[in-house]
Amino acid sequence: MCVRPGTQAPEFETQAYFRDGGIKPVKLSDYKGKWLVLFFYPADFTFV
């Protein structure tokens, strides 16, 4: 699968850190109808 700018992101579920002090599961569909900016850092914290 290839994701390109300007195309719809595929549905996914992952864990995210929230400022209230916890890591919680989130799904893309949780934000349906809202503006959302996604950032991916594939090599972050890997010491490559």
Rank of each mutant, 00 (worst) to 15 (best):
Q8A: 11
E11T: 01
A9T: 09
P5L: 09
A43I: 11
E13I: 03
P42T: 08
E13R: 03
W35R: 13
Y31F: 15
T14S: 06
E13S: 14
Q15M: 08
D30G: 02
V3P: 00
F47Q: 13
T46W: 02
K34F: 04
R4A: 06
T14C: 11
T46R: 11
P5K: 08
E13G: 04
Q8W: 07
M1L: 12
D20L: 12
P5E: 08
M1Y: 09
C2D: 09
V3C: 05
F39M: 13
T7C: 07
T46D: 13
D30L: 02
G22M: 04
G21C: 13
T7V: 13
G21Y: 02
G33I: 01
F47S: 14
P42C: 07
L36T: 08
D30A: 02
F47C: 06
Y41T: 13
A43C: 15
V48S: 14
Y17L: 12
L38E: 09
S29G: 08
Q15F: 06
R19T: 10
K27E: 01
D20G: 14
W35F: 13
F40K: 11
A16D: 02
Y31W: 15
K32F: 04
V37D: 10
P25Q: 03
V3F: 12
D20Y: 04
P25R: 01
V37H: 10
Q8H: 10
E11N: 12
P10V: 03
P42Y: 09
F12S: 01
K24F: 05
F18E: 02
S29L: 06
Y31N: 05
D20K: 04
A9N: 03
S29Y: 04
V26F: 02
F45E: 14
F47L: 10
P25I: 01
Y31K: 05
S29I: 07
E11Q: 14
P42E: 09
Q8C: 05
T14P: 00
C2I: 15
F18R: 01
M1C: 11
S29Q: 11
F45I: 06
T14W: 02
K32R: 15
T7W: 08
P10C: 03
T14I: 07
P25E: 01
P5C: 06
P10L: 04
P5M: 10
T14H: 01
V37K: 14
L36A: 07
A9S: 10
P5S: 09
D20W: 05
L28I: 01
Y17V: 10
L28N: 00
A9K: 05
T7D: 07
Y31P: 01
V3W: 09
L38M: 15
Q15L: 04
E13Y: 00
K27D: 00
K32A: 12
D30H: 05
C2Y: 09
L36W: 05
A16T: 06
I23W: 03
L36N: 04
A43L: 15
V3N: 05
V26D: 00
V26P: 00
G21S: 13
V3R: 03
